[in-house]
Amino acid sequence: MASRKSFYLVREDMLTDAMEKTLEAKELLHSGKVKKINEAVHKVGLSRSAFYKYKDGIFPFHTMVKEKIITLSIILVDRSGSLSQLLGKVAETGANVLTINQTIPLQGRAHMTLSIDTAPMALDLDELMELLEGLEAVEKVELVGSGS
């Protein structure tokens, strides 16, 4: 089983310049001051590659505290009932499934992204990911985003 990413709380003055600019670009996009990523990165003086490197891994603390919608990347074994079992486990936690995107299975594996509203859950995010990784049909679970 692949190791899961750990999360850390880091003081702002410890962030690299590229990380700070990524946060600025994300805020410009979120506020509607710019419409395209190209505009946002140009305005803050950041390369697109640096933006894409950090965009899904850095968030202002206040958004992580109040955000209740997460997106998980999951590698699922292609076998009858796998998706049903996964969704059943998510439902047991009280989370609400918002979107499901799944690739056509190749070589016995399907990649899927699952966006869920975690507000009704009693578990924390680490517990949810551990629960899903414990399913026989699940090979890997990663947090890829958080947002409303």
Rank of each mutant, 00 (worst) to 15 (best):
G81E: 00
E24S: 08
E39G: 02
R79S: 04
K66R: 12
L114M: 06
Y8I: 14
K5Q: 11
S49P: 06
K21L: 09
N38R: 15
E139N: 02
L143Q: 10
A91L: 05
K66A: 12
G94A: 00
E20V: 15
R79H: 02
S73T: 07
R48W: 03
G145S: 13
F7W: 14
S80K: 14
R79G: 02
S84Q: 09
Y54M: 01
A25V: 02
R4W: 07
K53C: 00
L83A: 07
V41L: 09
G108S: 10
G81N: 03
K43M: 12
K68Q: 13
A50H: 04
R109I: 05
F61R: 13
L131S: 02
L87E: 05
H42S: 15
L123P: 05
R4H: 11
N96G: 04
H30E: 07
K35N: 11
L86I: 03
G108Q: 12
P105I: 04
M64S: 12
L131I: 03
G81S: 06
L86K: 03
L128K: 02
T71N: 05
V10M: 03
G145W: 13
K140W: 07
K33Y: 12
G32F: 05
E12V: 14
L9E: 12
A50I: 09
V97I: 14
K140G: 05
G57P: 03
G134L: 02
A95D: 06
K89M: 12
L76G: 08
T118K: 07
G108H: 09
S80R: 14
S31E: 07
E133R: 09
M14W: 14
V141S: 05
K66P: 08
N101L: 05
V65I: 15
G145F: 10
F51W: 13
P120H: 08
E139S: 01
E24T: 06
L106I: 15
G145I: 09
E139R: 01
D17N: 09
Y8D: 13
R4G: 07
V77I: 10
I104E: 07
D13Q: 13
L143F: 11
K5S: 09
M121A: 05
S49F: 06
G94F: 00
L114A: 01
L86D: 02
V97T: 15
T118Q: 01
K140M: 09
K33S: 12
T63F: 03
G32R: 11
S148R: 13
E27C: 06
A95R: 07
Y54I: 00
K55H: 11
A40G: 11
T99D: 01
I74G: 01
D56W: 15
L83P: 04
V65R: 15
D56T: 15
E12L: 09
A95G: 03
L143R: 14
D56Y: 15
L131N: 00
N38Y: 10
A18K: 07
E20W: 11
G57C: 04
E133Q: 12
L86F: 10
S31D: 08
K36H: 07
M129V: 10
R4K: 11
G94S: 04
L123A: 09
I70N: 10
M64I: 15
L87G: 01
L83E: 01
D117G: 03
Y52W: 02
E20D: 11
V10L: 04
F51N: 11
T22I: 03
P60S: 10
L143E: 13
S73C: 08
